[in-house]
C-alpha cells in the first residue's frame, strides 16, 4: 500500500471513529501543516489553536475530501491553510503587512529528519521559480502565505489583476508539472 492509499485508508477508518487512523494521519502530515501554519501566523499559540481546529474539522468531516481535486495531503493542507488565513484576518488579532518569508519565522528548529523526497521537491520548486522570475514567487507567497486577494496583490505590486492572474497561473503550472503523477492522485 503506497502513501496515497494509506492516507485514504486512514480517512475510511476515521469515518468509523477509529482514533488510530487519526493518529496515523497526524503523524504523516502534521509536520507540514505545522510548518505552513506557523509560517503564516508567526506565533506558536495561534498555530496550535489553528491546528487543533483543523484536525477537529478533519476528524469530524473526512467526507469533505474530494478525490477528484487531488491527494489527501493537499486537502489537509487546504483545511489548515484556510483556517490560518481566517485566523490572521479575524478581528482583534495582530495583522501584518508582509507574508512570512522562509527565514522570517520565529520557529524553533528546522526538522533535520525531513526526508530526501521533501528536500528534492523543495529544490525543484526553487529551481522552477528561479527560471520564472522573482515576481512569480512573490505573487504566490503573497497569495498563499499572506492571504491577499488578486486585487490586493496587484495594488501592492503596482500592476494589473490580469497580470497577477497570469503570473500565478504560469507559476502553478510550472511547479505542478514537477510533481510525479503518482504523488498527486
Amino acid at each position: 500500500m503506497n502513501g496515497q492509499e494509506r492516507d485514504r485508508s486512514c480517512l475510511e477508518g476515521m469515518r468509523t471513529g477509529d482514533t488510530r487512523a487519526l493518529e496515523e494521519l497526524y503523524e504523516r502530515h502534521n509536520g507540514l501543516l505545522y510548518s505552513v501554519v506557523l509560517r503564516i501566523l508567526r506565533e506558536a499559540q495561534g498555530t496550535e489553536q489553528v491546528l487543533r481546529e483543523s484536525w477537529l474539522q478533519i476528524w469530524r468531516g473526512p467526507g469533505g475530501y474530494n478525490v477528484a481535486r487531488g491527494n489527501v495531503g493537499a486537502w489537509l493542507l487546504t483545511v489548515a491553510r484556510n483556517r490560518a488565513i481566517a485566523w490572521l484576518k479575524s478581528d482583534g488579532l495582530p495583522q501584518r503587512a508582509e507574508p512570512a518569508a522562509g527565514g522570517d519565522v520565529p520557529a524553533p528548529t528546522e526538522d533535520a529528519s525531513a526526508n530526501a523526497a521533501h528536500r528534492q521537491m523543495s529544490e525543484r520548486v526553487r529551481r522552477a521559480l528561479d527560471v520564472l522570475g522573482p515576481q512569480h514567487r512573490q505573487v504566490l507567497e503573497l497569495a498563499y502565505f499572506g492571504g491577499l486577494t488578486q486585487g490586493e496583490i496587484a495594488d501592492r505590486l503596482n500592476t494589473s489583476p490580469g497580470t497577477i492572474k497570469s503570473w500565478s497561473r504560469q507559476a502553478l503550472v510550472r511547479i505542478g508539472d514537477l510533481v510525479p503523477h503518482e504523488d498527486w492522485t
Partner: peptide, 25 residues
C-alpha cells in the same frame, strides 16, 4: 492544485514542540 500543493509542500520543515501532539489529539 498540484502546483499549489507542491509550492506549499516545499516550505522548510520545522520541528513541532513534542507536547503539542498530545495536546492537539
Amino acid at each position: 492544485g498540484r502546483g499549489a500543493w507542491a509550492f506549499a509542500a516545499a516550505t522548510p520543515r520545522l520541528l513541532e514542540p513534542s507536547p503539542m501532539r498530545t495536546r492537539i489529539l
